[in-house]
Write a protein that binds this DNA or RNA. Structure first.
Length: 495
RNA sequence: GGGGAUAUCGUCUAGCGGUUAGGACGAGGGAUUUUCAGUCCUUAAACCGGGGUUCGAUUCCCCGUAUCCCUACCA
């Protein structure tokens, strides 16, 4: 039977990076085994604030960006659809009734108020919390039905609860954690069907995984402690449980579950900052998975698929290392064809107002010339704006210049004569090429009997307003003759 | 309170009874150079604690400790 795995996000907002990592693990396994990767929308919680359908497109975008587009999902369809749980309500209802019939589930008429009071009482007495099974009889069937019906003349609202076995053990075979034993007596009678007719995760997931032919369930570690209940539901139907794998969670620097306080956590934040898809893919996979003794950090997607196995997933949580992500992204930026990086940088230049929304041919020409000069300084694409601003914007002296740079390099005595030489020689330079520019600048140094650095540094400041940047001759070349002369002249006039 | 999981440099990790405990990010130093960056070289940096098992434990078992997760008519 072919491997079928699924990613089951809830439409509660923009997807979290940890969430996407498990999606990636699923996708990789499907690709490796020649199976199918399925995405299913778990929209069974209709609590206001927890159902945000307007965020669904971000789930879709994230998957597309990573290149992990599902083989079957709500967008592209598939033979096991629908892939949206709210469209499968009838099925859950039928299955809940099957369990009631077979004595594996029962109707519970307890009010939320009673449940709440019960829980408070348990907590106050330092007792384990959990449903007290008032509505369940010895055989696991609904006890209160006839009584309630007689009292009220009609059936009151109810939920359906799993009749968890009262003794024995449930053993979960987890592919990353190994076998885990749970005492059934410690497991609660989980609600399966809510009063509003929507299923809970446990019912919906068990039913859908079965109906969709899911063979492997890879999901976050936060599900591990309730895995016995999940398996109990599947057992109650008499189905074979899929293989389970629970990769550990991703933590923030303070070892708490990664959240907004730690910085960006939503996948789309990283996309906006300018992280390349392959960098994100590479980083996220390596955060909790290792290729063994192969001492490498950079893997192509194909190489990862070749090497991947669930056993290679580490068992302990990992702290999200923003620095390492940046490093990986920088590596991929430098590996990429320049044309691709230039294209990806354009939107950031537009956003920063450095070029127009519909860039002119001239603007594009500058971008093409100048972005390659800064690529080795780029860790994320959004940095391109700061890095290249002085190539696009007019630079006024002294307002646009770094004070420290000016203070350090403009007080030298040779400044004005040097600028004058540069203006004349560069104006007369025949071909505007890096080599020619270098030759001219070096000649000036010789002529004025200056050390090379005494020429380079003041000139850089004069022309860019700062002390850091690409090689001076590349920078001058990138600026173009007109801008270079203009800036040299202006500094000469005003200094 | 109950249940589950985990524990190697600051961080991500390799190791699957005997190793000088390896690599990477980050940090320090050096080389290159025209600044920054990049690249190359290099240094410091770890087996949570206690018991076992064993000729021998980072590795296997138990206990403790710490951390994380679950404990909802949320996923």
């Amino acid at each position: 039977m072919s491997v079928r795995v699924r990613y089951a996000p809830s439409p509660t907002g923009s997807p979290h990076v940890g969430n996407l990592r498990t999606a990636i693990y699923n996708w990789i396994l499907a690709r490796k085994e020649g199976g199918q990767f399925i995405a299913r929308l778990e929209d069974t919680d209709r609590t206001p604030g927890r159902y945000l359908p307007e965020g669904i497109w971000e789930i879709e975008e994230s998957l597309r960006y990573l290149g992990t587009v599902p083989d079957e999902w709500w967008v592209g369809g598939g033979s096991a659809g629908p892939y949206v749980q709210s469209e499968r309500l009838e099925s859950y209802k039928v299955h809940a009734e099957m369990l009631i019939e077979s004595g594996h589930a029962y109707k519970c008429y307890c009010s939320r108020e009673r449940l709440e009071a019960m829980r408070m009482d348990q907590q106050a007495k330092n007792m384990p919390t959990g449903y007290d099974r008032t509505c369940r009889d010895e055989a696991g069937r609904s006890r209160m039905y006839a009584q309630r019906l007689a009292e009220l003349g009609h059936e009151p609202p109810y939920v359906v609860r799993l009749a968890m076995p009262l003794e024995g053990q449930t053993i979960v075979h987890d592919m990353v954690k190994g076998d885990i034993v749970y005492d059934n007596r410690t497991q609660d009678d989980q609600v399966l069907l809510k009063t509003d007719g929507f299923p809970t995760y446990f019912l919906a997931c068990a039913v859908d995984d079965h109906l969709m032919g899911i063979t492997h369930v890879i999901r976050g570690d936060d599900w591990l402690s309730s895995a016995a209940k999940f398996v109990a539901v599947i057992n109650a139907f008499g189905w074979e449980a899929p293989k389970l794998a629970h990769p550990p969670l991703i933590l923030g620097a303070d070892r708490k579950k990664l959240s907004k306080r730690h910085g960006s956590t939503q996948f789309m934040d990283f996309v906006k900052e300018g992280y390349l898809p392959e960098a994100l893919f590479n980083f996220l996979v390596l955060l909790g998975w290792s290729a063994g003794d192969e001492n490498r950090e950079l893997f192509s997607i194909g190489e990862i698929i070749e090497r991947f196995s669930l056993q290679g997933i580490s068992e302990h949580p990992a702290i999200f290392d923003y620095d390492k992500l940046k490093w990986i992204n920088g590596q991929y930026i430098r590996q990429s064809p320049q044309g691709r990086i230039i294209g990806l940088c354009i939107p950031y230049l537009i956003k920063a107002g450095l070029i127009s929304a519909e860039p002119t041919a001239e603007e594009l020409e500058i971008a093409r010339r100048v972005i390659p000069l800064e690529i080795e300084r780029m860790k994320v694409l959004s940095e391109v704006a700061d890095l290249t601003a002085y190539f696009f914007k007019d630079l006024d002296y002294p307002s646009g210049y770094e004070e420290k740079a000016v203070a350090k390099w403009f007080k030298v005595e040779h400044l004005k004569p040097m600028l004058l030489e540069e203006i004349t020689l560069l104006s007369n330079l025949k071909d505007w090429e890096v080599e020619g520019i270098e030759k001219v600048i070096r000649e000036i140094g010789d002529k004025l009997e200056l050390k090379f650095s005494e020429v380079i540094h003041p000139t850089r400041v004069a022309v860019t307003g700062r002390t850091v940047g690409p090689g001076l001759f590349e920078a001058i070349w990138g600026l173009g003759r007109e801008t270079t002369i203009l800036r040299l002249q202006r500094v000469f006039d005003r200094v």
